[in-house]
């Protein structure tokens, strides 16, 4: 449950291996061959970045905090493991996911307000009214089997930050890294505490000097090296904070391989981010919406 990720539906039903996830997606695409080839989509992470920006735009109008945005992103990701994206209007699905996430995260927004703000945010592609959003809510909940409670890494971060006496800068960098992980498949692949530990590790290794969300990949590869050398590090020697963290990792039963993998996924995200083009994403998404009349 909320306190217990181990008994949660998230762990039981919404955490996949990479192979499973790839399978689910290729089966979904196989059912809609023509559609898929007719409307190519941007690289998945670019699309996620684009959707994240759209969520943020809508969320800002309603002065929402990070948590409902994070939950909404997870809903979107889960929904699109069940439904081919080109059969939907992603803007409607996003507005609905956010409406639902707000109720789940105890900051409810009136449905009419969400519809009005979505129309203002996306005047070209969002023409839906309240009944449409309400109908979409039914789809969203049904596809997710009413499993709406999402465990986020933010809480593990809060719980763990004391252990490592993180500075304010490090905490906010770790927080940003957690925000970024929603742009990857990581929320569908790993438990929240693994993500939190990865974010803490990176924030300590990288020494948050840069204010930008994007982290230098050089720093990250240093981090990876530190992880790789874990076995070699003894109890003696200078107890730098990085080493202390590495020792902690070695002593805890945490899956270090998972942390290495998460780190790599994040580096790769930051590399891919360099070539992100909002226009390209927008064009490709708008194209299938318009062509199939999904905005009506």
């Amino acid at each position: 449950m909320a306190a217990n990720y181990w008994d949660s539906t998230q762990r039981a039903n919404w955490t996949f291996s990479k192979a499973q996830l790839a399978n689910i997606r290729s089966e979904l695409e196989a059912k809609d061959r023509a559609l898929v080839s007719q409307y190519p989509l941007p690289e998945r992470r670019h699309l996620n970045i684009y959707f994240y920006h759209q969520f943020t735009k809508l969320g800002r109008r309603m002065s929402l905090r990070q948590q409902p945005l994070a939950t909404a992103q997870v809903y979107l990701r889960r929904f699109y493991t069940k439904i081919e994206i080109r059969r939907t209007n992603p803007f409607l699905v996003m507005a609905t996911a956010l409406y639902l996430a707000c109720k789940m995260e105890e900051c409810p927004q009136h449905i009419r307000l969400v519809v009005a703000e979505a129309r203002n945010t996306w005047p070209d592609v969002f023409l839906a009214d309240t009944p449409k959003l309400g109908e979409c809510e039914f789809s969203l909940i049904a596809e997710m089997n009413s499993q709406l409670i999402v465990h986020h890494p933010y809480r593990s971060l809060t719980d763990l930050q004391g252990n490592f006496s993180l500075t304010q800068d490090e905490i906010s960098l770790a927080w940003s890294i957690i925000n970024d992980h929603y742009l990857t498949d990581l929320p569908l692949l790993y438990p929240p505490h693994i993500i939190a530990v990865t974010a803490i590790f990176l924030s300590v290794v990288l020494k948050p000097t840069q204010s930008s969300l994007q982290v230098h990949s050089v720093g990250v590869s240093n981090a990876l090296q530190a992880l790789g050398n874990m076995q070699g590090i003894g109890a003696s020697g200078a107890q730098s904070r990085v080493q202390k963290l590495v020792n902690w990792l070695a002593e805890s039963s945490i899956d270090v391989e998972a942390i290495v993998d998460c780190t790599q996924e994040l580096i790769s995200l930051y590399e891919v981010w360099e070539t992100y083009s909002e226009k390209d994403c927008k064009d490709k998404v708008h194209r299938f919406i318009k062509a199939k009349g999904l905005d009506k």
Binding site: K103, L133, E137, S146
Partner: peptide
């Protein structure tokens, strides 16, 4: 028409499944 699900129904559904 669909009007949006009440928060208490949402809570109950989410908790019941969990």
């Amino acid at each position: 028409q669909y009007t949006g699900i009440s928060q208490s129904a949402i809570r109950e559904m989410a908790l019941c499944t969990e």
